[in-house]
Design a protein around this nucleic acid. Structure first.
Lengths: 334, 334
DNA sequence: CTGAAAGCGCTAACAG
DNA sequence: CTGTTAGCGCTTTCAG
């Protein structure tokens, strides 16, 4: 089928190893023979077999990227940042969607490992348990996980300052005069959400006037936001402000508010988290806490790449990104 | 480092080939020895090296997926459909974002080919020219392209019935009584957009009352929609309805409308195309023409997989999906 | 059912 | 600067 290095060796009367050098390095090869090799390669329509090369060098130049669902715009930004950075360094990204399913997740991890990827990036999907973390550690490749607040011996992390972000949201809402404020969030195990919640609660606690925080847990998805909001309105009709764990959840809340015949920000002030692409064009445009998703994706690749160069014991790296409040039209003073 | 097949051969006193059979096939191996092999493999924490296997079998079990930008929610759905289908068959997806850049695009194609992917899925990114199509043909792997209206000797295609969709939009707007209707679309070379436009124009033409179609071209992106709408309002203040080439473009239009102090559907009726995830939660919820993105992604993988089994001359396959109008709140009768 | 041998396409010492 | 040799980890004839 495709021409091989041997073919061009035969054709040129050179030795395969010389051809190899001419093609990849360029060093230690006479310019004349190099040109000759290149010409023949062109003529034979030769294209290196990267998987053969990978076998001998041990480098696949491929990075696994495991998230819950690419349709969540938060991940789209993250992935794009990672892909761009990887591309710039000559690496490919294999994309895996786990849907937060612990079984699927481990299947993907194992499959990536068998493909001998250079490293793995993962959002902290279904919370990893001890033995799973140990398994990942045993892979001997750099792994960086997003939004993971715990520290382990080998895993690197990149995350936003969720605690601060939660505080920003809480303070903002209080500053607007709200006193019955709800926080709609996801499962307890998600460390990043827990941090947002903690920061939020802390902010409310430091206020002079008596604010009543209501915390509800469900799924941090569009649907989850919708459900939680409905429940909230029936149980606590006096709420005037909601801090949603992320924008997509906030979108669900928005939907519920509209269906209930209320309005944002007329009856309910709403604030999200992430500053997802479409947050600016909902009605009303969503006030939210921005985290630099694209940059976080990039950073993860940088860490990964720098670690894969190191030998011996790898020291994990941890990077935390600042957040900021994006004020739009979904909150009002009371 | 990692245990190899040889290690377990030595440990068990068997021949590597026997071990190989025990591990992969299971056929033609005594149950007893098979169990023994499995046990030792487990003990040694053995994991097959898929890249070594790939080298000998010539199968990478990897599929390249080249799109313009994963942050466009249209692609997110498509990609997810593809990834799920690929996963189900034991294939991985390597994701590439070309940004419609012809150079980047060909780089990706070549890199995928060198990685010996089993096939390539691509959205019809920057329009391919003759010699590029020839190059793709020469790869000798199945390639399926989305949204490509031209037919070539080797490329398979999957697309929605864009012509019909355009017609649906046109008819709907006319039925509502609009007579000054604009269509905001992308570059001429994009065959799918051209079809949408053609279907739309055809529908208007068959109307009894005199409708004035205005067609504007720009970029079919959020920003492009915004720009075109601004221009449209200053040049044709009498428009009452807009058909945007896709939802993301429609979102841009929506933004422009709001900024201009008008409202949808009060002053402008707006209809999109795609039925992207968030189309239902903009304000107002967007009326649009839905195409089955997820299913299209799946279908592409099916075609790809069925083709990679075939030997000899491959017959390309073409699949066209129906579309339907999703009526929401962004249009009104005049 | 198992072993021996060869080789996928490439790189990497080591000589020369 | 170039050739020789060996081998990455696995599968796959072909014998036995």
């Amino acid at each position: 089928m495709s021409a091989t290095l041997k073919d061009i060796a035969r054709e040129s009367g050179l030795n395969p190893s010389t051809v190899s050098r001419a093609l990849s390095g360029g060093y230690g090869v006479h310019e004349k023979t190099r040109e000759k090799v290149l010409a023949i390669a062109e003529k034979l329509n030769y294209h290196p077999n990267l998987i053969a090369r990978g076998l001998v060098t041990g480098r696949s130049h491929t990075i696994g990227l495991l998230i819950s669902d690419i349709r969540n715009p938060y991940f789209a930004d993250l992935v794009r940042g990672a892909e761009d950075a990887a591309y710039a360094s000559g690496f490919d990204i294999v994309l895996c969607n786990s849907d937060l399913d612990p079984v699927k997740q481990m299947k993907y991890f194992r499959s990536l490992r068998e493909k001998r990827v250079s490293g793995i990036l993962t959002s902290s999907v279904a919370a990893l348990n001890r033995s799973e973390i140990d398994e990942l550690d045993s892979y001997g490749i750099p792994i960086v996980v997003f939004d993971e607040t715990r520290r382990t011996r080998h895993l690197s992390t990149v995350l936003a300052d969720n605690f601060q972000g939660g505080g920003l949201a809480g303070k903002y809402l209080m500053g607007l005069g709200h006193s019955v404020i709800a926080h709609l969030t996801g499962p307890r195990e998600m460390g990043n959400l827990a941090q947002r919640c903690a920061g939020f609660l802390k902010a409310l606690k430091t206020s002079s006037n008596g604010v009543t925080p209501i915390v509800m847990r469900g799924l941090h998805t569009y649907h989850g936001g919708y459900e939680m909001a409905k429940k909230l309105f029936s149980r606590h009709p006096s709420v005037t402000a909601i801090f949603a764990a992320n924008d997509v959840t906030a979108f669900g809340v928005l939907q519920a508010v509209l269906e209930t015949g209320m309005s944002v920000p007329g009856d309910i002030s709403l604030i999200g988290f992430d500053n997802v692409q479409l947050a600016g064009i909902t009605h009303p445009p969503l006030t939210t806490v921005e985290q630099p998703k694209y940059e976080m994706g990039q950073a993860a690749i940088e860490i990964l790449l720098s670690q894969s160069k190191e030998h011996g014991e790898r020291v994990p790296e941890h990077r935390r990104f600042g957040v900021r409040l994006i004020e739009r039209k979904s909150c009002r003073a009371i």
